[in-house]
């Protein structure tokens, strides 16, 4: 009887795990399967096995695109952590009502599609009605200019997209952070900077690294912003995967490229986890 009850409990609790496994494992297996299939010019892929798609991965422009993806992810994650941390800290120090307004505002931006956001940035950075006109009015620029396509435009748009995630990840930790410990450090003679680096940073390193990792993973697969706002020379892997699959009709090659990108992302995650853990031990 007790055994049956325990079994029932186990089954009841295991369904989220099983669902998650099914939703992740089945598409991943399918991806692997297609990556080792021969191409079919009229359809998706044909039965059979070949490593042709993987051999083609060693081309310099694909390695370059992979590096571009990782670099873009790291830069965007670093900027959104740099902006998101102080922003979250400020929000947590506000009155309850103001906090809610800020959090609702940040959540609202998540409801916009990234396509819409990328196009808005394209307009915002254009010569005719874009930001450069504001800079000219402020005397910062001589004449209005188009600010796309450029890496700066891509990064600005991506930071906008991931910043809410960074804030929402940091919010619980920073709101639990006691001001007493900072005050204690200050009373003991620490400068504000010293209090921040020796008290706040160690207490929040783990969550900050999670926020960084999340921003990086969200960015590594970015497709629309680099396509619309970036130069082809810096198109990341996701854009090349898209054109290989959709325009090139080469699903095996696109799958192999996806697995390649997945590998790089996992490596990035492991590395970030190492950094977070390694420093904590020291």
């Amino acid at each position: 009887m007790q055994h049956a009850a325990r079994l029932r409990l186990a089954l009841l609790l295991s369904w989220p795990t099983l669902t998650l496994l099914g939703l992740v494992a089945i598409p991943a297996l399918l991806l692997i399967r297609i990556s080792i299939a021969p191409r079919d010019p009229s359809g998706m892929w044909s039965p059979g096995f070949t490593l042709h798609a993987y051999r083609a991965l060693m081309e310099p422009e694909l390695l370059g695109a992979l590096l571009d993806s990782v670099e873009m992810a790291v830069v965007v994650a670093a900027i959104s952590l740099g902006l998101g941390f102080p922003l979250t800290y400020l929000i947590t120090r506000m009155r309850r009502g103001q906090q809610v307004v800020w959090l609702v505002f940040l959540l609202t931006t998540l409801s916009l599609s990234d396509v819409l956001i990328a196009f808005s940035w394209q307009v915002m950075l254009s010569k005719r009605i874009g930001l450069s006109n504001v800079f000219v009015a402020l005397g910062l620029m001589d004449a209005p200019a188009s600010l796309t396509p450029s890496s700066g435009a891509v990064i600005a748009c991506l930071v906008y997209l991931v910043l809410p995630f960074t804030v929402l990840t940091l919010f619980p930790v920073l709101s639990r952070l006691k001001t007493d410990v900072i005050e204690a450090a200050r009373t003991l003679g620490a400068s504000p900077l010293r209090a921040f680096t020796s008290v706040v940073v160690p207490l929040t390193r783990g969550p900050a690294m999670i926020a960084f990792l999340m921003a990086a993973i969200l960015t590594v697969g970015a497709y629309v912003p680099p396509l619309v706002l970036g130069r082809p020379q810096h198109w990341p892997m996701a854009v090349l995967i898209g054109s290989t699959a959709l325009a090139g009709h080469d699903l095996p090659r696109a799958s192999a490229m996806s697995i390649f990108l997945l590998g790089a992302t996992i490596l990035l995650a492991i590395l970030t986890a190492r950094v977070a853990r390694g420093r904590r031990r020291a």
């Binding site: 695109a65 090139g248 080469d250 090659r253």
Partner: peptide, 16 residues
């Protein structure tokens, strides 16, 4: 139809 994948690869190579 015959060379989609080749065209796509070479075009991407050129443009990137």
């Amino acid at each position: 139809f015959q060379f989609t994948d080749y065209m796509e690869r070479q075009f991407t190579k050129m443009v990137t």
